[in-house]
Simulated assay, not measured.
Amino acid sequence: MEAEAATLRASVAAHASAMVKMGLEFTYAQGLEAVREVADGLPLFLDLKLHDIPNTVASAIGSLARVRPAMLTIHASGGRAMIAAARRAVDETFPEGARPLLLAVTVLTSLDAEALHETGVESDVADQVVRLGRLAVSAGADGLVCSPHEIRLLREALGDGPVLVVPGIRPAGSAAGDQKRIMTPAQAHAAGADYIVVGRPITRAPDPAAAAAAIAAELSA
């Protein structure tokens, strides 16, 4: 985990990343104090994907004030009451001007139609993403986490208001891994992503800072 933390800071130091992203693996292994130490004043995308009953999610958000995230994730599938409770907790917990963007995860990028159907959802992936996107934004989410394949559908359904944060990004030639719905950084940018999320192609590269810088250069071009 120390190597992962160094990688995160190296990518930002190379001016190739807008913020540091930390999720379940690092937070569970090292705790919130380590999250705060690694971020060290840099914008923090805290990707914990909270999903529980409304009161529990609200209480969990209350405990996150000390790390001051710029973005925070919940699962849209937690339902309207949970999303609304999360929004109230964000508004009440963080000082004015320091409130993180509340982002609702629609359908995980590791899921395709077959995997989604196995969970009991009969809709196809695109319909489910739009359904959850509408629900989340109407309940108070600032934006959504979606695969690059659903960017245009969400823009058509919801307009330019919601912030779209897009994982499932793989530079040309990178292994897809467990991601099913992927695009290159340039393709996602062209489709209308506000932020792209790149993990393993950077953290597992021989030179992570150089890999991050190459992605930034692709986006600039």
Rank of each mutant, 00 (worst) to 15 (best):
A81C: 02
G143C: 01
R36T: 07
R68Q: 15
R152M: 09
H51A: 13
A58R: 01
D91P: 01
T119V: 09
P100N: 07
E156V: 04
G161L: 12
A84F: 00
G31H: 09
I53Q: 09
T73W: 01
L50W: 08
A76P: 10
A126W: 03
Q128G: 01
S63Y: 11
V129K: 04
D124L: 09
T27H: 12
G159A: 09
D47V: 01
G79W: 03
A70S: 15
D142H: 15
I53Y: 07
E150Q: 07
A84R: 11
I53D: 10
G161W: 08
A65C: 08
G143R: 00
R152C: 06
V137T: 15
F45I: 05
R80W: 00
A39P: 01
E92V: 00
P148L: 10
R88K: 13
E118Y: 04
C146Q: 01
D124F: 09
V125G: 11
R68I: 01
V57E: 04
V90Y: 04
H75Y: 09
S147D: 04
D52L: 06
G140D: 07
R80Y: 02
V129Y: 07
A126D: 14
L32N: 08
S110A: 14
G79R: 04
V129G: 11
K49E: 10
R80M: 01
G140C: 10
E25I: 13
V105E: 06
M71C: 08
Q128K: 13
E25M: 14
T56W: 11
E114Y: 10
V130D: 06
R68K: 15
V90E: 05
S63N: 14
L48G: 10
T106G: 10
L72F: 06
K49H: 09
P95S: 10
V121Q: 12
N55A: 15
G140V: 03
